[in-house]
Design a protein around this nucleic acid. Structure first.
Lengths: 264, 264
DNA sequence: CCACCCGTTCCAGCCACTGGAACGACGGTG
DNA sequence: CACCGTCGTTCCAGTGGCTGGAACGGGTGG
């Protein structure tokens, strides 16, 4: 279908199809039927059926009265990335920040030029489904992303930046130099800001979690543009980030894990 | 290798090998090298190398300075099973129980004849690595397992029970009738007990989380056999289970999810 | 300098994978 | 009751992705 062009795509392996299928599940409808999966994944029905049977056998998918859902094998594997350990350490502090601000709190790491959300504590009235757990967003459009990019080695940045910066709203940064300017400001102030750059009507303050000179993750608190954050939010955010950083730092020293923080 | 016998195993697909590889990662050493994975998975080195390359491309595995670790794609998928939503609802109550008892708290669901641990809040001095998050244990050897089995339809039980009951210690139940007797007692008392049946020196009290006549999950608190639980532990356990049950129940009514609880 | 371990690459043969098409079971409709 | 649409399931011959032993190169240590 997309190989009609001269673009010689990589030969589709059964593995990539399997993950296409798994990725066809979305967080909203956690139980999907075969035909839904067929159209959502774009694979031939016959192939989907065969793959489902195999994946069920492996526990990656479970049958749910004539429907399918992600299985607990995926849950087991999904709790194994090193970053998850960091998330677990951070959660209590995130909860405190969440209680204090009453707004949506995010916790994310950087992968390439994207942020990946490891935790999200939603505010009461959160209709937003962007930025669910595990979701990826362009770093330049989010407060956590700016906080993380600001602490990357400046010489690495040009390699990371996609040539036309991806944008989620008209307010999203479009110019690389403008981004650089913001990043240096983030580095001095210790806080990153985002105003309707990811989603209209929403803004965000973010703080990096710095360990060994690197930002291993970032926290943020978002707020509606028509209802500002409580007064002490900024300092609370700083405290949260600092507390998580020292927790991570101590786990590096005492723990048996000898990897460097930047590779979470 | 295991096809030397007349046993005609199912033809090994690339998918099963991929999951063999993923399952070769264990929670302790979260970053593994190619040769470690080769021997841990039992696959030919060449195959492992090829699979790793593909899985890295898909984000299922990430490279970590000449090592490999589970990637965040797995994290994303691993947060999608419906049971995870239930876990998130339960965690605050589990934390309260954990604070009260000071001992290891478990939260698990039933899959076939095995329990799968969705959450584990370890006590201070927990050396035990059995029953990590996502791990599976024979239901008959654990308190959560007994609590869950007790609320299964009695006519389904014989199909679930493996013919020789799997045992983890000399104290593990070996007789099916003995198990049945215990289950009826669990049903009347509302609590399940386990004494050195999963691990020597450890015991457990478990309570089912009952919604719509079915046990959708179970909680347990474990304790050393030489240091009994605090006095109010049993009633606290009951309260915890009841609180989680009503939370789940309300999420079923208000929520958009219309599946039956037993299929978590 | 050699021995050893690790990760990487190569390649011809085979067989698992492919996906269009046909089938049978429901459930709603005229 | 006949008809139609939808869903899950099964079939099958062609083919190209998978296979894994073996050989290669780079690094470390003895």
């Amino acid at each position: 279908m997309e190989r009609s062009m001269g673009r010689e795509g990589p030969p589709p392996s059964i593995l990539s199809k399997a993950f296409d299928l798994l990725n066809a599940f979305n967080a909203q409808e956690r139980v999907m039927t075969l035909n839904e999966l067929t159209s959502a994944s774009g694979l031939p029905k016959s192939t989907v059926h065969r793959l489902l049977a195999r994946l069920v056998e492996l526990g990656a998918i479970e049958q749910h009265r004539s429907g399918y859902k992600i299985g607990l094998t995926m849950f087991r594997l999904g709790s194994m990335p090193p970053a998850v350990g960091m998330r677990d350490r951070a959660v209590p502090y995130l909860a405190a920040l969440h209680r204090f601000t009453g707004q949506t709190v995010h916790f994310a790491v950087l992968r390439g030029f994207e942020v990946v959300y490891l935790e999200k504590l939603p505010s009461e009235h959160s209709a937003s489904v962007l930025s669910g757990i595990g979701a990826r967003l362009p770093a330049s459009c989010t407060a956590v992303g700016k906080a993380l990019l600001a602490h990357e080695a400046p010489e690495d940045l040009p390699d990371l930046l996609p040539c036309p910066l991806p944008r989620l709203t008209p307010s999203s940064i479009r110019d690389a130099d403008e981004l650089f300017a913001e990043l240096t400001e983030v580095r001095t102030s210790g806080l990153a800001h985002e105003y309707e750059e990811a989603q209209p009507g929403l803004a965000c303050i973010g703080a990096p979690i710095v360990v060994n000179e690197y930002a291993v993750a970032a926290v943020s608190a978002s707020y509606r543009t028509n209802a500002p954050l409580p007064k002490g939010a900024e300092s609370m955010l700083r405290q949260t980030a600092a507390a998580i950083a020292s927790s991570v730092r101590s786990s590096l020293e005492s723990g048996r894990q000898h990897w460097f923080p930047r590779e979470m």
